[in-house]
Design a protein around this nucleic acid. Structure first.
Length: 366
DNA sequence: GGGCTGTACTG
DNA sequence: CAGTAC
DNA sequence: GCCC
DNA sequence: AGATG
DNA sequence: CATCT
């Protein structure tokens, strides 16, 4: 049993206990213990098995939680958790994740309506049933609706920070393969979006195909969705971030990078511009020679290329055209790996605070 | 036994 | 004030 | 629940 | 928000 | 309506 997994069970139980309205300080103790376990550089299970050692020696873990942990290691759960799971539906934990809904409200909703799915909850809001309950009104109904919406939007997305770490690890692994020339993240990660739906990596070099194999065999990669000579996709980590790795001919690298960095909308705009300029003659039967020009923004479309955030003393209107999402973000043309690497020197981004401060620590004050 | 972060917003 | 978020 |  | 003056 | 809870 993994430390992270044990911590997860503890936190999960704390959440349910909160819904059930138990003592707040006891609940906090569970959370403190969970957090202590997560940050421990040593296997809890190993300590459990070592007769020389005592779980209660660890800060935040006393007699009660030590017992719970032993039970977890022995059978994968513990009494209190089982009891809670029996009392509340699995969706209770999911509901806790939606903005504006807290433990008290969830409990009330459960007691009065036996709400067991988000769909049901949504329906109750629309039918204006929520306002029948004490302390709940029309405002809350709308707030919950918005919360559900937001929750659904963010489902399946990942924080840039997480994706950047995944990219860093995978790039390093693939670059180590013999004959690989370059491995480059594209997609929304490269655009510096604060959240990412999936990860796109481009590989060039004669070793590219071998790199695809290395990718699907990577220890943290599983659930291979497809694996051919040119492209492989699979899920990364327990979180299941989907990763697409594409092998591209060296000559097409520039165009491929441009294309796969997107966004989709941005590509559409570019193509329309190209068409308007009559530059897409070679693009009739769907087979457009993307490899023809390395960077058709500059060589064909006569758009300015912004080399760095600092080089843009010119009007935004110039930059806006090549900005992937039509917004003025300073990190948009810089790979997120670079951003991640710049964490240590964050806060000096041309004097403009980026929207991606999660990566820096400039907003952490004492 | 007695404490367990502190503050702001919303309704 | 109760509940929620940060 | 944990810690002092 | 709802209660209160 | 301002203020309290």
């Amino acid at each position: 049993m993994d430390n992270v997994e044990i911590a997860r069970l503890l936190k999960e139980t704390a959440d349910l206990m909160e819904i059930s309205g138990e003592d707040a300080f006891r609940i906090r103790s569970y959370r403190n213990a969970a957090s202590a376990i997560e940050g421990l550089g040593e296997s809890i299970e190993a300590i459990t098995r070592d007769p020389q050692r005592q779980l209660t020696a660890l800060p935040g873990i006393g007699k009660g939680i030590a017992g719970a942990i032993e039970e977890i290691v022995a059978r994968g759960s513990f009494a209190r958790r089982d009891e809670m799971l029996e009392r509340y539906p699995p969706t209770a934990l999911e509901m806790l994740r939606i903005q504006g809904l807290g433990p008290k409200s969830i409990r009330l909703l459960w007691e009065h309506f036996r709400v067991s799915t988000l769909e049901e909850l949504e329906r109750l809001c629309r039918e204006q049933k929520i306002r029948e309950l004490p302390r709940m009104g029309a405002k809350l109904e709308e707030k919950i609706l918005r919360g559900i919406q937001l929750y659904r939007q963010s489902a399946g997305r990942f924080l840039l920070n997480f994706a950047a770490h995944a990219a860093e690890e995978l790039c390093a692994a693939l670059a180590a393969v013999e004959g690989v020339h370059r491995v480059t993240p594209a997609g929304s990660l490269r655009r510096g979006k604060e959240t990412v739906g999936d990860l796109d990596l481009l590989v060039t070099g004669e070793g590219a195909e071998a790199a695809l194999a290395a990718f699907v065999n990577h220890p943290r990669v599983h659930d291979v969705l497809g694996h051919g000579p040119n492209k492989a996709s699979a899920r990364y980590g327990m979180e299941g971030l989907q990763v697409d790795v594409r092998a591209v001919p060296e000559a097409s690298f520039g165009a491929a990078l441009q294309y796969f960095t997107g966004s989709k909308e941005h590509n559409v705009h570019l193509r329309q511009r190209a068409q308007r300029m009559g530059l897409l003659g070679c693009d009739q039967n769907g087979r457009h020679g993307a490899g023809r020009c390395h960077d058709y923004r500059v060589s064909v479309l006569y758009l300015p290329v912004r080399r760095s955030a600092c080089a843009r003393s010119r009007a935004d209107s110039d930059n806006r055209r090549i900005d992937p999402d039509g917004r003025a973000g300073s990190a948009c043309r810089r790979s997120a790996l670079d951003v991640a690497g710049a964490v240590g020197t964050a806060g000096t981004d041309g004097g403009r605070a980026t929207g991606n401060q999660h990566l820096g620590f400039s907003n952490l004050h004492g």
